[in-house]
């Protein structure tokens, strides 16, 4: 070999190693500033403090306390916000030249997406733990197994949603306004139609139909069952299928966009 390099070619481009490197890089800012995750919790905590009390007179919240009904929804909501906005980090990296640098590196295109999308699991877990810790001393009943399974399902969903958000950033080609317009247009209908803040059951027929077409509805319903410790197989199955479908679709779209990235 005529040139001496530090690189060990046999290590370069291994898909799992690549994904671990990208995931590791994405997690570093979180590890360095754990408070950044805590700050992103302010919003759901406001909902808990200022919105949840309004639910006390609302009907259709099931058997438990209104918090028991509301908390799973708020956990899903904060993850929905986080995962749908995550593409904005990539958008920023596209503008500075950082994304270009990683595209020239031998990291596989797939790992550039997978590593990023997998990171979404971390805020899901951290935020859920904080919310549950805050409400644990109240009328809210903690069912650890149910919470664990629920978070697993939500993580699968968020990996898919994060992946879609990255695909959107790539499609926007670094233009902020395109990204944010599409993200906001999508976010609120999905949020409201999933019955996260108020029950859908009392709504008009057309609204309930739309709600049934929203995969997030099934995840929220399943999470409510799990957080309450009632394990309804049908509900669980529907939620799992919805999460897997979103995940598969998101990854398919995300991987396609990243592989086509120039």
């Amino acid at each position: 070999m005529s040139t001496l390099t530090l690189t060990r070619p046999e290590r370069v481009g291994h898909p799992l190693r690549d994904t671990a490197i990208v995931l590791g890089r994405e997690l570093k800012p979180v590890l360095r500033d754990p408070f950044s995750v805590v700050f992103s919790m302010i919003q759901p905590l406001f909902f808990l403090a200022l919105f949840a009390p309004l639910l006390s007179g609302v009907t259709g919240l099931g058997a438990g306390s209104s918090l028991q009904w509301f908390v799973p929804g708020i956990v899903v909501m904060s993850c929905l916000f986080g995962a749908s906005m995550t593409g904005s980090n990539l958008l920023m990296e596209m503008q500075t030249g950082s994304h270009e640098r990683t595209l020239v590196s031998p990291l596989s295109r797939s790992s550039l997406l997978l590593g990023r999308a997998l990171k979404e699991i971390v805020p899901v877990v951290v935020q859920a733990v904080i919310v549950v810790a805050v409400v644990a001393p109240t009328s809210f009943e903690v069912h650890p197994l149910g919470i664990l399974v629920g978070l697993l399902m939500l993580s699968v969903f968020c990996v898919g949603l994060g992946s879609l958000s990255y695909a959107l950033a790539l499609a926007a080609k670094g233009q902020d306004w395109i990204f944010w317009t599409v993200q906001q247009t999508f976010l609120f209908p999905v949020l409201l139609l999933a019955g996260m803040l108020l029950p859908i059951d009392g709504g008009p027929e057309w609204l309930r139909t739309l709600s049934k077409a929203n995969p997030l509805t099934y995840i929220v319903d399943a999470m409510r069952g799990l957080f309450a410790g009632t394990y309804d197989v049908g509900q669980l199955l529907a939620g799992t299928v919805a999460a897997l479908v979103v995940c598969a679709l998101g990854l398919a779209v995300g991987l396609r966009s990243m592989r086509a990235a120039d």
Partner: peptide, 13 residues
């Protein structure tokens, strides 16, 4: 490759 832009992520150390 050292591109014309900045290669480091802004929120990284």
């Amino acid at each position: 490759y050292i591109g014309q832009g900045n290669g480091a992520g802004h929120n990284q150390r």
